[in-house]
Design a protein around this nucleic acid. Sequence first.
DNA 1: GGCACTCATCAGCGCCTGCGCATATGTCGA
DNA 2: TCGACATATGCGCAGGCGCTGATGAGTGCC
Lengths: 113, 113
Amino acid sequence: MLQAEVLKTLASARRLEILHVLARGPIEVGRLAEAIGATQPNVSQHLGVLRAAGIVDAERDGREVRYRLADPDVMVACDVMRRVLARRLTRLGAMASSGAITPPAVRINPIAR
Amino acid sequence: MLQAEVLKTLASARRLEILHVLARGPIEVGRLAEAIGATQPNVSQHLGVLRAAGIVDAERDGREVRYRLADPDVMVACDVMRRVLARRLTRLGAMASSGAITPPAVRINPIAR
DNA sequence: GGCACTCATCAGCGCCTGCGCATATGTCGA
DNA sequence: TCGACATATGCGCAGGCGCTGATGAGTGCC
């Protein structure tokens, strides 16, 4: 499943932070690292992953390298995901406030961990 | 980053397979396991994850348990992701056929792995 | 009650991944 | 060419995840 690869690439809090910053415009590695409070090698690795996935592009400028979103629609996809998430939270919230806490109609595994 | 949790849940080939099957309608665990060629405990675990994430719902029917998508929009989000993926592949394909194989304008890490 | 069936859970084990640290590579200026 | 700066890479480790096999729990039928 190819799609899983892309999702796997996005399924990282750090990488989502990075994309969030990149959504505001191109930026260099150093500034990016500082912006999200991560080490430079760490950010560089994540950017490498995102770049390998074709989600971001890099452009050298002197001794700096400026990264940018390769396809802004990635953020659109993220927004859709976020909307689904929001609706889910709303639903759960309604269930909780309506007193239907853990409606054990079935009782099914939460897979532990 | 809450969003990462949802994405992490979806970032699994098996779980995407499951969602794909569920998109065609409710189904029982056994049939689902058979449909994707996985063991029953394995499918049950994944369903547990998806259920904990609020992505699927379960309903008992006799000794069987029927699962269904809790929010069809999850598939919409997946489609958006897939579109981004498709465009990326198209772009890469164009680059390859245009002879611009590995344009080392920068040469940046592929982060191994 | 006992049995068969369906599903959930537990325990254990590789594997992969992200992290920090040290270091290599690349670039500019003197 | 040398040094300073920006970025990329290699390495080792700790934690998380998915898979399998065995077992527990819920349900219907005799």
